[in-house]
Every structure is written in C-alpha cells, then in structure tokens.
Design a protein around this nucleic acid. Structure first.
Lengths: 158, 158
DNA sequence: TATCATGTAACTTATGAAGATTCATGAAAG
DNA sequence: CTTTCATGAATCTTCATAAGTTACATGATA
C-alpha cells in the first residue's frame, strides 16, 4: 500500500503559500507538489471548510492562508483532512466472536491507540510556523533555493 | 487503503496452536482465521524462517510452535513478518530537492520514527503468553468458546 | 464578453495485501 | 510401491483507496 501523502503535501503547500505575494493557483501549487491541480483542489477543500485557507475564483484568484502560520498546527491540518487512517496495520476482523481474536484486537488496538494519541499530541504542539523556521535554518546553512522559489518576491527570512 | 492484518492474524493463530494437541494444518488455521490455506502458508513462512514455528509435510504434518508462548514477543512476530510498513501516511517524495519539503519530511519523519520506536518497545515487552492469559481472563469472565475451540482437547487454563 | 480560476463529477491508474488455482515435493500410512 | 496428505511455491485475480486525469459547470475579473 502506497502511503497517504496528503498531510505532507498540505504542510509543504501552506508554507509556500505564506511565502508568496498573492494567491496561489491550484496549477502553481500542483507544480510545486509535482501533482495535478485537481488533486490540489480536492485536498485543499477540507482545509477551506475548516477555515484554514480561502479560495477565490476568477482573475487573480487562487488559494491563500486564512490565518498566520503560527496559528495553524499540524493537528489542525490532519483534522481538516478528515483524520485519515494513521496505521497500515490493523485487525483482520472488527468484531470477532472468537475470544482469542478479541484479546489480540484489544491488545493491539490499545497499543495503536496509545501511540496515536502521542503522535496527535505532538502534532498539536507543532505549528506550520515552526516548520517554516526550520526551513529558514536550512537556507542559512548553505541550502540552495528550489526551482519554484528562484526569482520570487517576499522570500521573508532571507 | 485496507490495513495489513498479518501481525494480528499470526498472533491469533499462534495462540490457538499452543492450545491444540498436535500440529495444525494450514487448512485448519485458515478456517480459524477465516482465510485461505495458501495465505496461511505464505504468512507463516517468515515465522518458520526465524525459528518461531516449525512445519512438517505429510500425514500428521502441519504447523507447531518451536518455543513456548512466553518466549515469543509481539516484536518477534513483527520482525519475522519482515517489519511491514506501520504507517498509512508518509512523505510524497523521498529525497526532495525543495528545502521546504525537506523540512516537512524531517519533521514528519522524526515524529513517526519516535512513535514507531515507542510502539516497537511496547511490542518487545508483550509476549504471546501475556495475550493468552488475557484470553483466559475473558473466558473466566463469562465468555463463550468460539466454534473452532468447542469439543477440543488441551484447552489449558479452563 | 472573453478569460481565468475554482468546484465537482466521473473515470482510470497504481499499489500491495489478500484470495484462489495449480502443480511439484516429500512424508507417512496402507 | 502406491495412495494420501501436507507443505512449498508460482501465477493469476480481486479488492480498496490515494492519486491522477478528463471534462464541464460556475463564478469573478478585466
């Protein structure tokens, strides 16, 4: 099973959007993410519904942040995406009659629930602003600009 | 993405095997797990290669534990299965040139690596014997026997 | 009114576990 | 020695879902 990259992609996209002067079209974001504009709209729709980003049609339209990066946590994004399945492993039957299987499901389910809680707690504590600052660090330490940032305005932090 | 149930199924199967008098054929195990005998052989192959179970051909053949349940941890099984992918989420690109994406991958990767470590630590501490005892508890507390255990010998713990 | 951009439906592709079929191999029973 | 039973393994199909694609409607701006 190929892994779900929606969370990763939205983090990537939103940080870029913060760096851009105006609204970013789905097409531009799709290029940044090496994907398709429809995939961008589809994925971004959840964030819009949760008030994290805004979209505008027509000339000069596109996507823009609805709040500062520091006021958006990784958990906000994860939840806006509909809390996609975290684990690739799971029980074979959800409500087994076999007591052995019930014991297995209980143990495994509890273990997964615990680490899920830990991960989401962490997501709640990390903001997109934190990630953006980590990017700025990388840049200072001799990183080169990616193609889609070269010759761009409002590259704050440089 | 449908989740990978191999770990769950192997835990289930091995506890049953401990309860059975002789060797269990792939067919019998497949019935217990509501699956196919070939799936059982395919999944069990890794456990055999790691010396957790033994298989015998011919009359009276089948699968048997190679060690006591208390000497098999959940981590042993997970590793014998080839350490299947734990998470359903992940990066969209493995080695991105974009520094923003690198920062996102670093943060997300570190968070996932941390909880993975916590989960595997837990798996190392839980043995199949522990799970079997939890099953025995359920049984004492008014549980009924699953169809494939009714009328069976060597139901230790009853 | 022409252009640009989102919104959305519908379809195809890619991936990997799971399921199923088939035959070879080897062990035990008769 | 032959039959039966079981694993071993190759090969194919099925299934679920994110991702990718195509097409068109809707609305905003120049």
């Amino acid at each position: 099973m190929r892994s779900d990259s929606r969370l990763s992609r939205m983090l990537h996209a939103l940080i870029h959007m913060d760096r851009l002067a105006g609204a970013a079209t789905s097409e531009v974001l799709a290029d940044m993410l090496s994907t398709n504009a429809v995939v961008v709209r589809r994925t971004m729709a959840g964030l819009r519904d949760q008030g994290l980003v805004r979209s505008e049609k027509g000339h000069g339209g596109g996507w823009a942040l609805a709040r500062p990066l520091d006021q958006i946590s990784l958990l906000d994004i994860y939840q806006a995406l509909g809390e996609p399945q975290l684990f690739a492993i799971g029980p074979s039957t959800d409500n087994p009659t076999c007591l052995v299987e019930q014991a297995v499901n209980a143990e495994l389910g509890a273990a997964l629930a615990t680490v899920r809680g830990q991960l989401l707690d962490h997501f709640a504590k990390v903001s997109l602003g934190d990630l953006a600052r980590q990017f700025d660090e990388k840049l200072k330490q001799g990183g080169h600009l990616p193609p889609h940032l070269q010759g761009m305005q409002r590259l704050d932090g440089l």
